[in-house]
């Protein structure tokens, strides 16, 4: 009896501690930002968000994050496929390298891109000859975003591919389906939930990227200034409400995506 009581107290204590931690670390700050952005009234909020530089920054961020997500969906799906389905020397190393963008400080990633794609570099000169420049223009931002969000799609697709042992494909073949048809009707649908949730997380992360982008974007307001850098600038110039207004927009986006990912995953488990 006393032991059950004890364990009940323990369990209550643990749960409360975790809840408190969660509330202090995540819920309060988020509520704080929403509160602060609206503290000067709704009019001030709309004024801040309709500021051309602000909404241009948000729009640009969404656009580039979308492009980088699409790139990652394509390359990440292929990379996940290759890493699971093919056996070749160096596969294990490659597989562990996938997580590097998570581990690396994003500023280092930015620096790498800066050195690699700058006007003095080989790639930079090629691009220059072809009549466009990468660094301090939108391509550099996309590259930075792609690099930082690279692991998401791969890591979401891999477990789903591992689950399929190849007999589903063989079953499709024996029923007369060609390889292409089997891919479209059998393999792709099985990978789709992973691709979708990986893409959404990648998108959400790309929206938020600061460290890698700030070094390579050039940060020209209205042209290559993305939302997170805009927020930084607003804080530097002491316009906290401007910063919070854009933050709220980004935050809402992220929360929506998170909810969508969860919804998709729960649906997958249900189906």
């Amino acid at each position: 009896m006393s032991s059950t009581l004890q364990s009940r107290w323990w369990s209550w204590g643990f749960r409360s501690a975790v809840m408190l931690y969660f509330i202090l670390l995540i819920v309060f700050p988020i509520l704080g930002i929403y509160g602060y952005s609206l503290s000067a009234g709704l009019a001030a909020f709309t004024e801040n968000i309709t500021e051309p530089l602000a909404w241009k920054a948000v729009l640009l961020t969404v656009k580039l994050a979308f492009v980088s997500t699409m790139i990652n969906v394509l390359i990440g799906t292929m990379a996940g496929w290759v890493l699971i389905r093919y056996r070749f020397p160096g596969r294990g190393l490659l597989n562990s390298l996938v997580d590097l963008p998570f581990a690396l400080p994003t500023a280092v990633a930015g620096l790498m891109i800066l050195l690699l794609l700058g006007p003095q570099s080989v790639v930079g000169q090629w691009a220059e000859q072809l009549g466009f420049s990468i660094l301090f223009h939108q391509p550099a931002i996309v590259i930075a975003m792609v690099f930082v969000t690279f692991p998401f799609v791969i890591r979401a697709v891999q477990p789903l591919l591992e689950e399929m042992d190849g007999s589903e494909e063989e079953a499709a073949y024996t029923m007369g389906a060609t390889k292409a048809k089997t891919f479209v009707r059998v393999i792709l649908p099985a990978m789709l939930p992973g691709i979708a949730s990986g893409a959404m997380l990648a998108f959400s992360r790309a929206l938020a990227e600061f460290g890698a982008v700030v070094l390579v974007a050039g940060n020209i307001p209205g042209k290559t200034l993305i939302a997170s850098v805009y927020i930084f600038g607003e804080i530097e110039s002491d316009n906290i409400t401007g910063a919070t207004a854009v933050s709220v927009v980004l935050l809402t986006f992220s929360l929506l995506i998170l909810w969508l990912v969860n919804y998709l995953q729960s649906r997958r488990k249900g189906v």
């Binding site: 589903e168 079953a171 059998v186 649908p189």
Partner: peptide
């Protein structure tokens, strides 16, 4: 062909 683990299409 009936596979040992049935290999039904899960989706």
């Amino acid at each position: 062909f009936v596979f040992q683990n049935y290999a039904l299409f899960k989706h």
